[in-house]
Simulated assay, not measured.
Amino acid sequence: MSIEGVHLLEHLQTPAMMIVRGQVRFANSAAKALLGAHIVGQDVRIAIREPRAVAAILSDEGGSARVKGLSTGGSVWEVDCKVVGLYERLVSLYDLSERVSVAKSHADFVANASHELRTPLANVIGYCETLMNPKAGGDEGLRNRFLGTIRHEAQRMQALISDLMSLSRIEAVKHEAPSDTVDVVALAHEVAGEFKGTMEVHVRANQSEAVIAGDRGQLSQVLRNLIDNARKYAKPEGPVEVSVEAASTGWVLVTVRDEGEGIGPEHLPRVTERFYRADTSRSRAVGGTGLGLSIVKHIVERHRGRFDIESRQGIGTTASLMLPLKGE
């Protein structure tokens, strides 16, 4: 490769090196930042301590290989070697970490969703088969009890599918900032009113209105999920409080607080992960899908806001979101 060609490599953001007779003769700034400035002049087998990558670089045909942990412990890189002369090789390094991580997340998501659906579906099939037996199906008390279980499991699947569809819709528009006008104070009163008759939700606000640019349907879902969570895990007859505070800094703080059992500190960092449950048995018993807080987090992020959860065991939990006021 010519001197001009080598210097062009310096302007690439992709890490690149010129290997001559198995030695690193040139490395651009990106390659030095990745592997260290000391690699220039080194044998390539020392600069890149990965047998498959070295084999591709030193071969007569060139080639490529995947290398793990080149930058950080969990990173994945592709080392690509092109033959540019009898003893010259152009080596480029491509960071595949994000792509691999996304692929793994998708695979884990499908596996988790399949597992969550498989259990209630197996129960439905099992109870149906039992009811098809004339002896069991002829017992009215047993039949009604089994039908109640079938209905409960079917509702679990329905709720899960509904949440999965919500996540899909949210992710489809996550890069589009919402532009409709939404009064968060009015919305909080409206959603709290949906729970009238099942629980008491107190709403307080420091202003008569707090207007933001948002998606009304998605923000309703956020409040509904948070209030429903508080209802499920609050003490019986315990209060659930929704607070809306508009600040002079250009943000509105919305909090939903309960006085329930609280969440253990070891669970807090993971409660917004898909399908993660701090209390698996209780969550399923009250109809939780394990997706509610993940949906909340995705919606808040789409609104360019921040979501946080604070909890103390035996005292209660406070879920809070900060959203930018319109015009700020």
Rank of each mutant, 00 (worst) to 15 (best):
S114A: 15
G137R: 07
P134V: 06
L164V: 04
A159Y: 00
L147I: 12
I125Q: 03
R169K: 09
S162V: 04
E116C: 04
R118T: 05
A172W: 01
G141S: 12
G141Q: 08
E176D: 13
E171M: 11
V110T: 05
G137M: 04
A107F: 10
N133H: 13
K104I: 04
H175I: 07
K135A: 11
A188S: 12
L164S: 03
A107P: 05
L164N: 01
V184Q: 05
N112Q: 11
F146R: 09
T181R: 15
R169D: 07
I125L: 06
V182F: 08
Q158T: 09
E129H: 15
Q155M: 15
P178T: 11
R151Q: 14
A122Y: 10
T181Q: 09
M165V: 14
L117D: 01
A188G: 05
L142M: 14
G126S: 12
T130Y: 03
A113C: 03
L187D: 02
D183N: 14
I170M: 06
D108G: 05
N144V: 09
N123W: 11
L164P: 03
E140C: 04
T149Y: 11
T130D: 01
P134M: 08
G148P: 00
N133A: 12
V110L: 11
V184T: 13
D108Q: 14
H115M: 10
R169C: 03
Q158Y: 14
T149I: 15
S162H: 10
G138K: 04
S168L: 10
D163S: 13
V110D: 04
K104R: 14
E171K: 12
N144Q: 13
D183H: 08
P134Q: 04
Y127C: 01
V110R: 08
N112T: 01
H175Q: 09
L160N: 02
P178W: 04
G138L: 02
T119I: 10
H152V: 07
E171R: 14
V173G: 03
T181C: 10
S179H: 15
A154R: 02
N123T: 14
A154C: 11
M132K: 14
L160D: 00
T181G: 07
I150W: 00
R143E: 00
E171D: 10
P120M: 03
A172P: 00
H152F: 13
Q158L: 11
D183K: 06
L187E: 05
Y127H: 13
G126V: 00
H152K: 14
H115G: 10
D180E: 13
A186R: 15
L121G: 00
L131V: 10
P120E: 02
V184S: 06
I125H: 02
H115Y: 08
K174A: 09
E116H: 09
Q158N: 10
R169S: 07
K104E: 05
H175G: 03
E176F: 09
A113F: 05
N144M: 12
I161W: 02
L167G: 07
V110P: 00
I170P: 04
E116M: 09
T130C: 07
A122P: 01
T119H: 06
I170Q: 05
M132I: 12
A154F: 08
L160E: 00
Y127V: 02
N112M: 07
V185C: 07
R169V: 02
K104T: 02
A172M: 06
S168G: 10
V173F: 05
R143T: 13
G137W: 08
D183Y: 09
E153V: 03
D183V: 13
L147T: 10
E129N: 14
V185Y: 01
